[in-house]
Design a protein around this nucleic acid. Structure first.
Lengths: 263, 263
DNA sequence: ACCTGAACACCGTTCAAGT
DNA sequence: ACCTGAACACCGTTCAAGT
C-alpha cells in the first residue's frame, strides 16, 4: 500500500527523491483501485501516475510496459480465487484421511468463484487465458492446487490436465455470458427471420428482453459445469454419488456487474 | 469488393467525388484483408483509409465509429461459420424425413468449425460473445439454424437455449486455448513450487515446453464438447447411440495460427 | 451526400536533465 | 537508482470547406 494516494501534495521537484515512491505492489494496488472505481477504459499510464502522484514517465522505472502492469494485476487476481475446499482435501489426504473426499463439490465451488471473478474482469480474460504460467506464480499455484487435489483423490494422472483445461475454457466463456448485456438475445424486429429462437426464448420468460430473467445463463452454466466434471469422472471411473445435481449450497446466479464503466 | 485497393492512384481533389467510393461491404472487405495479412493491431482507421485510398475522415461518412466497423466484421465472420449439417437436418425434417437424424454429428461439426474461426480472431471473441443479436442478422441466423434443428429433432424446447449457450461458452474459451502460446504451461524454474503440475505435464509429452504436442488441448476440447452435448442429451431423454466417442471424420486438432502479428 | 485536410484530445513510450 | 518534464509517433474523432 502506498500512502501517496491519500491527499493532494505539493509538487515534487525534479531529481531522485530521498525515498522511493513506487513499488510493484503499490502500482498493482492503484491499478485495481482505478479498475474498481472507473473501469478498465480508465486504466491508463496517466491515470495510474496521477493516482500515485508521480509523472507518467516515472512508471517506466518499474515496469517495462503497460503490459507488465497488466500482468501484475492478472496474477493478483488469480491469487484471490478461492481454492479453499480443494486445499482442504489436499490437507486431509496428506494427514492420512482416506475419505471419501468431496472433490465434486470442491471443483464446482472453485469453478463458480473463478467465473464470478473473471466476469468482473472481462477485459483481462483473453490475456489471462493465453498468459504463460511462467512468471505468474499465483496462477501457477492455483493450477498446482487443482491438479494436486485431483491426483490426491485418485484421479487418473493423464486425465488431470484435460479436465482442468476443459473446465477453464468453460469458465472463460461463461464469464462473458454473465457480463453480456441483458438484451443479448433480443430478437425484436426479427421475429420472422428467427421464429424458433424467438419462441423458445419467450417460453422461458415473460420479459424476453431480459436475458437474466430467463434463467438460461444460469442453467447453461450449472448443467455445463456438471456435464464436464461428471463426464470426465465417469470416464475416469470416479463416479460421484450425486452426479447430475447442483450442490444446494453453491450460488451460481450471476454476480453483480462491476461498478466501473462496462466495455 | 472495392477496386480501390488495386494500384496507386493520383491524389483525389477535395469535394464530393462523382461516384461514391466507400460502401459497408468494401470497408468490411478491407478490414478483413488487413486483419488477415497484418493482424488486428494493424487494423486502424488510418490503415483502413490507406487501403481504400481515402482520407481517414472519409470513413465517418459511413460508420459512426470504429466499433461500427468491428461489428460489420463480426457479423461477416459469423456468416462464414459452417452450419451445413444442421441445415441439412432441418431440410430433411421439413421434407417429412423421419430420421434418425445425425444431430450429434452436426452439433460437433458446427462446434469445431466455430472454435477454429474464433481461434483465428481472438481479439474479437469478447465482443462477439457479448454482442446483442439485434442488428447482427447473420449471427441471429446462425442461432436460428442451431435452435431450429434441435427443436426439429425433438429436443425439449426449454432445454434448447441452455445447450446452445453452454456450447458457445465452451467454444469461446477453447478458442483462447487454441491460440495460447506453446509454452503456456511451461513450469521451468518452478518445478518445486508446482511438482504435481510439472509431473502430470511431463508424462504427457517428451517436450513439456510444447503444449501442442501434449495433446491436452485437443483432448480437453473433444471430451468437453462431448460431455456437454451428451449430458444435455441424456437429461433430455435424447440419448445418442454413439455418445462418448468422437466422430472419426471431424478433425479437432488445433488449426494453423493466424498469419498476422499475434498480440 | 460524400469527399479532403486541418485540428483536437489522448494514448503509450523515450530520453535528457536533475539529485 | 529514480524522479520530472519535454517530446514523439500514433490513435480515434470532429468539423469546416469543397463539389
Amino acid at each position: 500500500m502506498t500512502d501517496a494516494s491519500t491527499t493532494s501534495q505539493p509538487r515534487r521537484r525534479v531529481g531522485r527523491p530521498t525515498t522511493r515512491i513506487l513499488t510493484r505492489e503499490g502500482i498493482t494496488d492503484a491499478a485495481l483501485a482505478i479498475v474498481r472505481s472507473k473501469g478498465y477504459d480508465s486504466l491508463t499510464i496517466a491515470s495510474l501516475a496521477k493516482h500515485l502522484h508521480v509523472s507518467p514517465s516515472a512508471m517506466y522505472n518499474h515496469a517495462r510496459s503497460k503490459q507488465d502492469i497488466m500482468r501484475w494485476v492478472q496474477d493478483r487476481l488469480m491469487a484471490s480465487i478461492d481454492t479453499g475446499e480443494l486445499r482442504a482435501i489436499r490437507d486431509a489426504v496428506a494427514a492420512g484421511d482416506e475419505g471419501p473426499h468431496p472433490w465434486r463439490h470442491a471443483l464446482l465451488a472453485w469453478v463458480v468463484n473463478y467465473r464470478d471473478l473473471m466476469a468482473r474482469h472481462t477485459p483481462l480474460v483473453r490475456a489471462i487465458a493465453t498468459m504463460p504460467v511462467t512468471g505468474a506464480p499465483e496462477t501457477l499455484d492455483m493450477y498446482e492446487v487443482v491438479a494436486g487435489a485431483l491426483v490426491d483423490v485418485g484421479w487418473p494422472r493423464e486425465r488431470v490436465l484435460p479436465l482442468v483445461v476443459a473446465l477453464e475454457s468453460f469458465v472463460y466463456g461463461s464469464a462473458y455470458d454473465v457480463s453480456a448485456p441483458d438484451d443479448i438475445f433480443d430478437t425484436a424486429g426479427f421475429e420472422e427471420a428467427a421464429p424458433t429462437l424467438t419462441s423458445v426464448l419467450l417460453e422461458r420468460a415473460d420479459d424476453a428482453h431480459s436475458y437474466t430473467t430467463t434463467g438460461v445463463g444460469r442453467e447453461a452454466f450449472e448443467l455445463g459445469a456438471m456435464a464436464i466434471v461428471d463426464s470426465f469422472a465417469a470416464a475416469a471411473g470416479k463416479d460421484s454419488p450425486d452426479a447430475g445435481a447442483w450442490p444446494a449450497d453453491i450460488d451460481a446466479s450471476a454476480p453483480k456487474p462491476a461498478r466501473g464503466r462496462r466495455r
